[in-house]
Design a protein around this nucleic acid. Sequence first.
DNA 1: TCGTTGCTTCGGTGAAAACCGAAGTATCGC
DNA 2: GCGATACTTCGGTTTTCACCGAAGCAACGA
Lengths: 225, 225
Amino acid sequence: MTSSADISRIASLMGDPARANMLTELMSGEARTAGELAKAAGVTAPTASGHLARLTEGGLLFVEKQGRHRYYRLAGPGVASVIEQLMGLAASSPPVGVRIGPKDPQLRRARICYDHLAGELGVALFNRLVDCKLIELYADSVAVTPKGQREFSKFGIDIQALELAKRPLCKTCLDWSERRPHLAGSLGARLLTRLYELKWARRLDGTRIVKFTPKGEMQLTALFR
Amino acid sequence: MTSSADISRIASLMGDPARANMLTELMSGEARTAGELAKAAGVTAPTASGHLARLTEGGLLFVEKQGRHRYYRLAGPGVASVIEQLMGLAASSPPVGVRIGPKDPQLRRARICYDHLAGELGVALFNRLVDCKLIELYADSVAVTPKGQREFSKFGIDIQALELAKRPLCKTCLDWSERRPHLAGSLGARLLTRLYELKWARRLDGTRIVKFTPKGEMQLTALFR
DNA sequence: TCGTTGCTTCGGTGAAAACCGAAGTATCGC
DNA sequence: GCGATACTTCGGTTTTCACCGAAGCAACGA
């Protein structure tokens, strides 16, 4: 069958450990050079180059030439979404595995999921938004309430502006370490950048870890209460 | 990294054409015997046996012995969801491919997506439910309206009963041939079984095709109008 | 212009795994 | 018990592909 041949094509691209390492590295949502990805995957430059060519050819990655560097990034949220779901599957159906979720406690605490906040703090924030009725759950989905619109505005986030974009405003994303949802979509992404702007948190270089300042974590915990 | 090693483990299981064929075959949501899956995958019994053992070992399949048969089925909605998303990716990022979606016109028309209706008719039904305000869209999600609750009840579907289940009532599922959403979740599944009950449609044996009777198709088109 | 850096292409090696035929095990019907 | 059916295990072959070192190409800096 034609469709299944295609799913095996995509899946086999993700099915190599070196390539999977590169893809997870790119889950931070940022672009990386070929050299950085080679190091992340633990292979030499030639090997990495071959892998990257195949991933690009296969439509999973975009590449951008900048001087003598080549910046690779995920081809879109669709790709990231499959990878995140794959992580969920891998975590929830371990053959004999004991480990669930990432080893690194910092990574469990707060990390980037493509472009929004995941981990304990991400899930906690999501729950608070629901409890305080800033967003409303419909079965397995979410929407911003009028109250939410006001509160987000006070926090410096303009919902109406976000709604103009083609991208869905709210989206739940299953957190693969917590097994509970956190907030994705354009609002999820905007919330994270706002945390950066306020200097409550910052990206830990070269990782998916989001590092909060002590003060920032307190303020996040008190937010919208 | 431990997490990426795990995603490559799962992805490589899906990355073999024969195994991918088996998995798509099981997307019908029903159980299949090892022999049927061997035929679907186009390999001999010994080869299929090996693949099935690995898929089961890897947590993607459940197996149930019944006499001299072995019935395999997908390990859960999570597995099906990843496969469906993979199909979406494969369809939207063809390397050079011309074909989008399945060749078989019947399969495009109406098919099973794990346990609910997909294809042209599935998408059309979803749009009608929205237009007639039986369900309401929130950004990228859905919920049943009071009017919907009444109409579904008239159609023989008890929303309140469905809500008791742990499973989400409504869920959108991106249709990979139409590239537009159709209805999943427990309501989506119930709608399909109701179509069977009313004999408007039936499963075509050994495929994912949902075959409507001429009268059934007319009635579905007129439904909820 | 020339060396340095970042990345790709080429060529050859080694290991993983997909595949089938044949033989083995379990269950059914008689 | 006996043959038939459904599936698995075993052994051996063939293909695929991940990997690296060496060489080639392109862009930057002096």
